[in-house]
């Protein structure tokens, strides 16, 4: 198993920064709650609970795209860079872009792998970044520059997912297994120049809810033997091998509501 070089710095003057050392495998499975419970029980016997993702903490992810939906169209073809804002709350918020820490995330998805980099910044900095008025350091993979280009092309927040995440991480971060449930998709009205800079954005209509649990396995190199078995078990019991939450959210948003069944990513 290759070592991870996930770095994390939290200071008052520089943004917290986390990045994948290299592209990592990412497989996701849509399973019933009972299967998910079994899977997470096995996972808990082998990996420690991630401190960053406590049970029933709500993750809110705001996805950006352009008026011509260029990010979504590229993602459907199997390769795209997502630009998104992640927030964490104890109870489910009905607004996004709320004051506090925002994680600006760049995720470069390809057919079987992904590369992610993110910066933890105050929300006003995140807003300034989305407006093209603030730059981020570009220490590793050049994802921030690609994101800036997307923003210059008009990318703005358009859709939101909210869910509870249970996450287990190996100590060296080479393997991460997550279970997302209570998954909800929302539309987000296009931001206007007259919107208050500091005001949170109210969520738009609920587009869909998913009754199942999304289990994701992300790893570098080879899986440990127990995880190989777990992967096979998941594959055997999955309802759908499904595309990313971003693609599912955008399909709901654009009325392409055959949802997760359109393409099979893996």
């Amino acid at each position: 198993m290759r070592p991870s070089s996930v770095s994390k710095r939290v200071t008052t003057s520089a943004p917290a920064h986390e990045t994948d050392a290299e592209r990592r495998h990412e497989h996701r499975f849509q399973v019933s709650e009972s299967i998910a419970r079994l899977v997470m029980r096995t996972t808990a016997n082998n990996l420690p609970l991630s401190r960053d993702d406590r049970p029933y903490q709500w993750s809110t992810t705001t996805y950006c795209d352009t008026v011509s939906w260029s990010i979504f169209r590229a993602a459907q073809k199997g390769s795209a860079m997502q630009l998104r804002i992640r927030e964490y709350h104890r109870t489910r918020p009905r607004e996004v872009m709320t004051p506090g820490t925002a994680w600006i995330e760049f995720k470069d998805d390809e057919q079987d792998t992904s590369l992610k980099e993110r910066f933890g910044v105050p929300m006003d900095v995140a807003r300034a970044f989305l407006r093209g008025e603030a730059a981020l350091p570009q220490p590793d993979h050049g994802l921030a520059e690609r994101a800036s280009q997307l923003l210059r092309e008009g990318a703005r927040p358009v859709a939101v997912t909210q869910y509870n995440r249970l996450a287990y991480n190996s100590l060296d971060s080479s393997l991460r297994i997550t279970a997302d449930h209570n998954l909800m998709y929302f539309a987000l009205p296009w931001e206007t120049r007259t919107d208050g800079d500091a005001d949170p954005s109210p969520l738009g209509s609920l587009l869909a809810m998913e009754p199942d649990v999304i289990v994701e396995m992300k790893w570098y190199g080879e899986l440990p033997h127990w995880a190989v078995d777990l992967h096979a078990y998941l594959k055997e019991n999955t309802r759908e091998e499904r595309p990313s939450k971003f693609i599912v959210a955008m399909r709901w948003l654009l009325g392409e509501t055959d949802g997760a069944k359109k393409t099979r990513k893996k």
Binding site: V158, A187, L188, W190, G204, S205, L253, L254, G255
Partner: peptide
Amino acid sequence: DAAVVAALA
């Protein structure tokens, strides 16, 4: 606006 049409839908 996608969100406005989604609300209508």
